[in-house]
Design a protein around this nucleic acid. Structure first.
Lengths: 348, 348
DNA sequence: CTGAAAGCGCTAACAT
DNA sequence: ATGTTAGCGCTTTCAG
C-alpha cells in the first residue's frame, strides 16, 4: 500500500495525519473543517483523507486556540427529581439550538460538593454555568471573580454577593392562587406542609401562604404550620402528625411533591376520603398527580421553561444581563379533583 | 501596587500569570497543582499567588498534553423518563467516584441525532461513551473505528457490528416471573400491551411473554397482543381498545410505564375495579406505582445499577472488556395490590 | 488558494 | 528543588 503519511491505527487521527495523507498543509485541512476558502478539488481530497482516517477535529486543540469550549455546565440538586429533569431537558434543548454541549452534575444538596463541581467546571473552561444553588454565595463569588458567568435557576441569587442573573418560577403567585382557591372553596383550617433546608425557595412559599391568608382575613393557625426535613420519612411523619391529630384540618397545602405524596399516602392510610374529608393540593406538578385517585390539584412549575430561559440568558443575552432583574416564569394552577368544599360547609 | 507580573483582570489567569506573580518557573506551578515535589515554602508562595488570581488550572491545556479529558459522554433517549433519570444518576455516581465529569445529551429516539451527538462527543475527546442506542450500528461503527470506547446500556449491542460491551436489565426473567405470577393467580386471558419502535428491548419482552405462556400451556390469544406507538395518545388508544372490547381480558401486562399509565387511566374511566374486574401489572417501576389506588404490581428495572455498572465497565474494567458477554442486571417483581385472581375463579 | 510558523495552557523530560 | 524547553492539535496571521 502506498504510504501516504505514516499514520498508524490506534490513536485518533490528527490534523497532521490528514494533511499528510491528502498531501496538503495542515492549514488547509483546518480551513476545510472550519469553513475557510479552499478549492473544490482540494476540499474533496481532504474530505476523502479524513474519511479514511475517521478523523474528527479535536475540540480540545481548537478550544485551546479559541479560548472557548462550546460547552456549558449544569448543576442540579438531583437529576431524578421530576422538576429538575424538566429543567435539565430545557437546558439541553436550548444548548442544542445554540450548538453547545452540556456537562451535568448533581450536588445532592451539599454546598461543599456544589462548590467542588463548580470549580471543576471552571477548570473545564465551560462557557458558562446554569446552577440550582443550595450553598450560600461564598463559593459562587470565587467563580464569579474568576470571570465565570453563571445564571441561577429556580432560586434567587443569594443575597449580598455579586448578583448573578436568575430565572425562577413565580411561586409566590402560585401559592397565592392556590390559597385563594382553597379559601374560596370555604376552607378556614388550612395546613401548610413545608420542607426545611431548601433555602430561600420554601421561605417564599410559606410567606405567600401567610400573606394570602392574612389578606383574606383568615386566621393563621400556627399549629397547622409544619415543616419536615427534605427526606421522605420526615415528610411522611409530618403529614401523619397533621392528619392524625383529629379532623381539625380541612385542607392541606403541600409545599412540594414529596410532601404531597406523603399527604396522599397518609390520608389513604387513615381512610380519609379526598376531598370529602380533607382536601389536598400541592406545589409542583408531577406525572403521578393525574394518576392519583382523585387526581391531585397542583400548582405547575414549568421546569423546562426555567431551564431553557436560564440557558438562553447565559448564552444569548449575555449583553443585556442583569438588566430588568430576575426572570419570573409564571406558574399555573391545575385544578383537578382533590379539593372540594370543607365538610360541614353549606356546599356550593 | 508592586507589579509582580503584568496580569490584567478579565481573562482567566494562566499558569504563566501565577508563575510570574510567585516569581517561580511555570513548571513549579504545574508541580504544585499536579503533585510534584516542591518545597513547602515555594508551594505556599504559589498557592497564595494562585489564590489572589483566582487561578484554576485549565483542563483544556492539560488535556491537550495528556491526551485524556477525564470526561465521559452519556446519551439517553430522554432525560425526563424516570428510568433514564435513574440510569443517569448511576452514571454520575460512578463517574464522580472515578473523578470524571459527564457530558449528557438526549437523542429523543432519533438515530440521526444520536449519531450527531456521538460524533460531537468524539470531537470533545471524551474518554468514553455510555449510550442507550436507538439507531442501528452504522453510526456506532464509525465511532468504534475511530478508537472510541463505548458501552451500551439498556440494550444489547446491535447485531452484526463490532460488538461493544453492554449492560442491561434481565427483562426476559422479569417478564417471565410476572407472567408466572399472573398465571399462578389463575389468569388465562392475559393481554400484552407493548410499544413499537423501542428496538430490540420490546421484542425481548414480547418473546418472554409468549414463551412463558407456552411453557405454562396457556394459549396465546393473538387478539390480546396489541402494540402501540411510543406516544402517550397511542398507548391510551391501545389500552382503550383492549379494555373496552368486552370483559374478555382478565389481566393486562403493560410492557412499559407509559403503557401501564394508560391501562390504569382507561380502567378507571371504564369503571373497572382493579383488581376485581381486571388485574394490571407493568414492566418498569416508577414512583407513582405506589401512589396508585391500588398500588401497581410491577417489575422493577434498576436503572441506577445499570448506569453505574455501565460506567464502571467503561472506565475501570477496560482491560477485561468483552469477556463473559453482556452484563445482566436482575430485575425484581414488586407485588403490590393491582393483581388478584380473575373474576369467576374459585378464589383462594 | 495554499503553506509555514507562531502560540493557546499545560506537562514531562532534561538540565541545573 | 527548580528552571528551561519541546511539543500536544488546532487556528490564524503572514507570505507566496
Amino acid at each position: 500500500m502506498a504510504d501516504k503519511g505514516a499514520y498508524a491505527e490506534g490513536r485518533p487521527a490528527t490534523i497532521k495525519d490528514v494533511a499528510a495523507r491528502a498531501e496538503v498543509g495542515i492549514a488547509t485541512v483546518s480551513r476545510v473543517f472550519s469553513g475557510g476558502s479552499v478549492s473544490a478539488r482540494t476540499r474533496e481530497r481532504v474530505r476523502a483523507a479524513a474519511e479514511e482516517l475517521d478523523y474528527r477535529p479535536s475540540a480540545v486543540g481548537r478550544s485551546l486556540k479559541t479560548q472557548r469550549t462550546g460547552g456549558i455546565g449544569l448543576i442540579v440538586p438531583d437529576v431524578t427529581d421530576p422538576f429538575y429533569s424538566d429543567l435539565m431537558a430545557g437546558v439541553l434543548d436550548c444548548a442544542r439550538s445554540l450548538g453547545e454541549h452540556v456537562v451535568v452534575d448533581a450536588a445532592h444538596g451539599d454546598p461543599e460538593r456544589e462548590a467542588l463541581i463548580a470549580d471543576r467546571m471552571m477548570e473545564q473552561r465551560v462557557d458558562g454555568i446554569v446552577a440550582v444553588p443550595m450553598g450560600g454565595n461564598e463559593a459562587w463569588e470565587s467563580v464569579l471573580r474568576a470571570g465565570g458567568n453563571v445564571v441561577f435557576a429556580d432560586r434567587e441569587s443569594p443575597a449580598g454577593g455579586p448578583a448573578a442573573p436568575a430565572v425562577f418560577t413565580d411561586d409566590r403567585a402560585g401559592v397565592r392562587s392556590l390559597v385563594e382557591y382553597l379559601v374560596g372553596l370555604g376552607h378556614r383550617r388550612i395546613a401548610f406542609l413545608g420542607a426545611a433546608g431548601a433555602g430561600e425557595a420554601v421561605g417564599v412559599r410559606e410567606g405567600a401562604f401567610r400573606d394570602t391568608l392574612a389578606q383574606r382575613k383568615v386566621a393563621i393557625r400556627e399549629d397547622l404550620m409544619v415543616v419536615a426535613r427534605p427526606e421522605r420519612d420526615s415528610a411522611y411523619a409530618a403529614a401523619a402528625g397533621l392528619l392524625q391529630g383529629g379532623a381539625d384540618v380541612s385542607a392541606v397545602l403541600a409545599s412540594g411533591h414529596l410532601l404531597g405524596e406523603a399527604a396522599v399516602l397518609v390520608a389513604r392510610e387513615l381512610d380519609l376520603r379526598v376531598p370529602a374529608d380533607v382536601s389536598i393540593a400541592m406545589v409542583g406538578d408531577v406525572p403521578w398527580a393525574e394518576l392519583c385517585d382523585p387526581p391531585l390539584t397542583a400548582v405547575a412549575r414549568p421546569g423546562h421553561d426555567v431551564g431553557y430561559r436560564a440557558c438562553e440568558l447565559l448564552l444569548r443575552d449575555r449583553a443585556r444581563r442583569g438588566r430588568g432583574g430576575p426572570v419570573l416564569v409564571p406558574t399555573e394552577l391545575l385544578i383537578r379533583g382533590s379539593c372540594g368544599p370543607p365538610r360541614g360547609s353549606r356546599g356550593r
